[in-house]
Design a binder for these strands. Structure first.
Length: 437
RNA sequence: GUGGCCGUAGCUCAGCUGGUAGAGCACAGGAUUGUGGCUCCUGAGGUCGUGGGUUCGAGACCCAUCGGCCACCCCA
């Protein structure tokens, strides 16, 4: 029988690597809560039209990277290639846009690209969107939030921030025309990719990697010269705020985004530790998008980070996360039968914070103890014939030379509670996870 | 989508100019008749990514295909 494998570019997260993901997700979630953001979850599948209207018809994402299919009733649906469009749609539909919203989300996104390091067909983003605030202060706060996240994760030294402003839609359109005209007269000096983009997505030529094209661009018209006074003021205010916040950044005039909906502020956190896929987190302002999707004009700004890329950065930095092992492993002779499970439940009732694994599947006493050791547990709880007849349990320390003790069950609870301070607490909650790093 | 390199046990890899598969780790059992870790012994596990071709014979060579990595492209 031929084995079925995962779809190309769509990976499993196996348990050994899960703690690293949990670390990123937990830190992000905790930070969002500290900044007053609320979580929103939207469907993975949306009407194709939503992405055509928001991302832009002629972008690569819409033209050749979307997972689009016909529903049974003939509707064209698409696996979301990014998160912003769905969030805007949901907020509009849920009537949330009559007031300021600070929202965050996380989840899988889908793009049919050629997989490589840091680029998958199903990948995961954690993102934020803020609606109803037009000023540069919220732009700056979002960047302060992300900067804090890198510090919390210990990767602040490997990412750097680049920012730029794209101005309003009208100014950008004027600039685009001018740029296309100017480059069109010099098309023979452009690399083939850039020549193609001249008619599709001319602004993207600005961040071409081709040296010849870059040299040519040195003399090209600048977007900055097409901005109106308000756009400039917004950008300058943002730069000042970032200075005051102590968030280092570099202005990159050539920084443009691949999605059509951005206006004014755009930014990218990049690294050179990941090869070609160096963008770890990116976003910007999209003041026109809500209206473009049929809502009232609403200023908005947001960002998304690539979870896989951040996890890769953590791993490159030698970081390794492990879930804490269990506290105790309960093993017993076959005659104990169901009493083992009953005892385990009894213990869990009394010690809500106790991480207790019960031996299942039989096997020799010796092999059970071996499994207890491999589990990483600090204690083995042993139930043999003697313990059965006297209603006791033997508490055997596995990580020290202390002698084992055979105790009445109530005394076992007390002993575990005194050795494991967290055992009596009810754990869970936003930051309740104890991840050893 | 384009180009280059690669694909042997769960993992990391060895396998000389083609003669028909190996190590370490991990896993299971035992040495140790209720007691783990260290050591030693034993065992299980691979149609050598898949399918064709060349050959008396292919893990090694050729082609295709799938997958991975890297760059382009794209972007988080």
């Amino acid at each position: 029988m031929e084995k079925i494998r995962s779809v190309r570019g769509m990976h499993d997260l196996l348990p050994d690597r899960a703690p690293l993901w949990q670390r990123v997700e937990d830190e992000a979630r905790a930070l969002f809560e500290r900044y007053g953001f609320r979580e929103i979850r939207t469907p993975i599948v949306e009407h194709t039209e939503l992405f055509r209207r928001s991302i832009g018809e002629v972008t690569d994402i819409v033209e050749k990277e979307m997972y689009t299919f016909l529903d049974r009733n003939g509707d064209s649906l698409t696996l979301r290639p990014e998160g912003t469009a769905g969030v805007v749609r949901a907020c509009e539909e849920g009537g949330l846009l009559n007031q300021v919203q600070r929202l965050w989300y996380r989840g899988p996104m889908f793009r049919h690209e050629r997989p490589q390091k840091g680029r998958l067909r199903q990948f995961h983003q954690i993102g934020a969107e803020v609606f109803g605030l037009a000023g540069p202060d919220i732009d700056a706060e979002l960047l302060a939030l992300t900067a804090r996240l890198w510090r919390a994760l210990g990767i602040a030294d490997r990412v750097r921030l680049e920012i730029n402003t794209l101005g309003g839609a009208a100014d950008r359109a004027r600039y685009r025309e001018t740029l296309v005209a100017w480059l069109g007269e010099r098309a023979e000096r452009l690399d083939p990719d850039s020549r193609r983009r001249l008619s599709t997505n001319p602004l993207r030529i600005l961040d071409s990697k081709d040296p010849g094209t870059q040299a040519l661009l040195a003399g090209a018209p600048r977007l900055l010269d097409f901005l109106d006074a308000e756009d400039r003021a917004h950008f300058e205010a943002l730069c000042t705020l970032l200075d005051e916040l102590g968030v280092p950044f570099r202005v990159n005039e050539r920084l443009v985004r691949g999605l059509d909906y951005y206006t004014r502020t755009v930014f990218e956190w990049t690294t050179d530790a990941l090869g070609a896929q160096g963008t770890v987190c990116a976003g910007g302002r999209y003041d026109g998008l809500v209206a473009q999707l049929g809502g009232r004009p609403t200023p908005a700004v947001g960002f998304a980070l690539g979870v896989e890329r951040v996890v890769l950065l953590l791993e490159e930095g030698g970081q390794d996360a492990q879930l804490p092992p269990v506290d105790a492993y309960l093993a017993g002779v076959p005659e104990a039968g169901g009493r083992l499970l009953v005892l385990a439940e009894w213990l869990r009732d009394r010690l809500p914070g106790l991480r207790l694994m019960t031996h299942c599947g039989g096997g020799s006493f010796k092999s059970q103890l071996k499994k207890a050791d491999r589990s990483g547990a600090r204690f083995a709880l042993l139930v043999g014939p003697e313990e059965l007849s006297t209603s006791t349990v033997t508490l055997k320390p596995l990580r020290s030379d202390e002698p084992q003790r055979t105790l009445p069950v109530e005394a076992v609870v007390a002993a575990l509670a005194s050795h494991l301070p967290h055992a009596g607490e009810r754990h869970g909650g936003p930051s309740g996870r104890r991840t050893a790093v």
